[in-house]
Design a protein around this nucleic acid. Structure first.
Lengths: 252, 252
DNA sequence: AAGTGGTCTAGACCACAGA
DNA sequence: CTGTGGTCTAGACCACTTT
């Protein structure tokens, strides 16, 4: 029963996650969920599959598990783990309408720094796009995208107006699935401030990103400058799911 | 063979991850690793266990997988997923020596806002600690920690000098395993600037955090203000491991 | 067509929480 | 002591890439 129509590559554990999520949202925090074995019986899947579904919910902050005790509904906090999202998606998820204005578009040699980041030669050409990003007609962000010209022939003619990621996917089969980001606080100079409609000397978040495709090849180098008074970064972090690299994060 | 001594709760898939990581670091990027079935045979474990180990390495950005093709060594990027780390750990991982100076410590009523965040009453008392955090004797961060006084009796007498998280764990069995964070860019006022040794009007990152324990109970509310010229936030993000909540993140 | 990683199963045993 | 989540196994089948 209830074999609804959504079949398109919907995995079993994803469907179970969705069904559980609907239940969870109706329960108060710290409610005890059925046991994994019960859920396995209820949904007629193996316990391993139920656990995969619960893993997703736990990563998403919807449930927490206590060994020997059970699985519980999480408290009402809002953030989820930082994931790679487009500006458009980001704004929509905040209930705002995104827009984009192209201020400049040209081709330039990569230069030493960006060439190293993108694993190309310093003399190789980059397509450079400079855009203002708005939400509900208010300028929020200045964005400069650099793409290896060899990978995006004819891009300059295609007038990237909406989501660049979608255009790259559709026209060039290029998908950014991972990115390395550096976030800093800066003070806006006169030019930036004017474009963003704030006073010079105002604070801003500068995010520099190297985007990689599914084969770990660098595709883009992008710098975004977000107004400090209209934008913040929200995310959940967890204690050291012990991994394999050195890194950083703030705390006490 | 090679049954080294580290047994303390070291899981099988974690040991395999570590062994693989040692191999990986000796190989150039984009090298093909042995197949999962080969690794299972080599290490005499099931394929599922090998896959758990590879999952950890993939999350940590050390390898990437291509269905039908194989598992490969990642490129040389540095960041790992943002995880909950103490200031001390953070600085040490950057090769710096952390230090802490307590500027003030007192008890205050929570007030409406913080009470809501910590799920207590506005009249309940909080222990408030105000510290300067230094790295190699340079002030980096101003930190204000709020803890429910009821959970940390006698804390004010215990002179929190080094890692507060360690002290909370040792003395009160309190462990922060998850946190919700909001990052903003601000401009420093005269007082903050003086304490950090920079000019007023300089940029800073302000990070507000609600820390939760393993049962999803709020334990702390902390505000950290980091010098914009000496601190940045570095992390890797991935494309939408489809989860269970609404959220946010920057991108094109 | 052969071989890879991706998903799922059925079952075992362990570590831990709670009455 | 009972029941929970945590780890691990051996094996099946699928989706995909590559030759």
């Amino acid at each position: 029963m209830s074999e609804t129509l959504g079949r398109d590559a919907m995995l079993k554990h994803e469907r179970i996650r969705d069904m559980l999520l609907a239940d969870i949202r109706r329960r108060p925090p710290h409610t005890l969920l059925p046991t994994e074995r019960e859920l396995a019986a209820t949904y007629e899947v193996s316990r391993a599959t139920v656990r995969r579904a619960l893993d997703l919910l736990e990563d998403g902050g919807s449930v927490y598990r206590v060994q020997g005790a059970g699985t519980f509904v999480s408290g009402p906090l809002i953030s989820k783990t930082l994931s790679l999202t487009s500006f458009s998606e980001d704004m929509v998820s905040r209930g705002l309408t995104p827009e984009s204005r192209l201020l400049a578009a040209d081709e330039v040699p990569a230069g030493a720094d960006i060439a190293a980041d993108l694993a190309i030669q310093p003399t190789d050409l980059l397509v450079r796009l400079f855009r203002v990003r708005l939400a509900n007609d208010v300028p929020i962000c200045l964005e400069t995208v650099h793409l290896p010209a060899a990978k995006v022939p004819g891009l300059l003619a295609k007038v990237p107006h909406g989501s660049l990621y979608e255009l790259l996917e559709r026209e060039y089969r290029l998908t950014v699935v991972r990115a390395d980001q550096v976030v800093q606080a800066i003070v806006l100079d006169h030019g930036e401030a004017a474009l963003l409609g704030v006073a010079p000397g105002a604070a801003a978040l500068r995010i520099r990103r190297i985007g990689l495709d599914d084969r770990d090849r660098p595709l883009e180098f992008t710098t975004s400058v977000y107004r400090g008074d209209r934008y913040d970064l929200r995310f959940a972090v967890r204690r050291d799911a012990p991994n394999g690299r050195a890194g950083s994060a703030p705390a006490t």
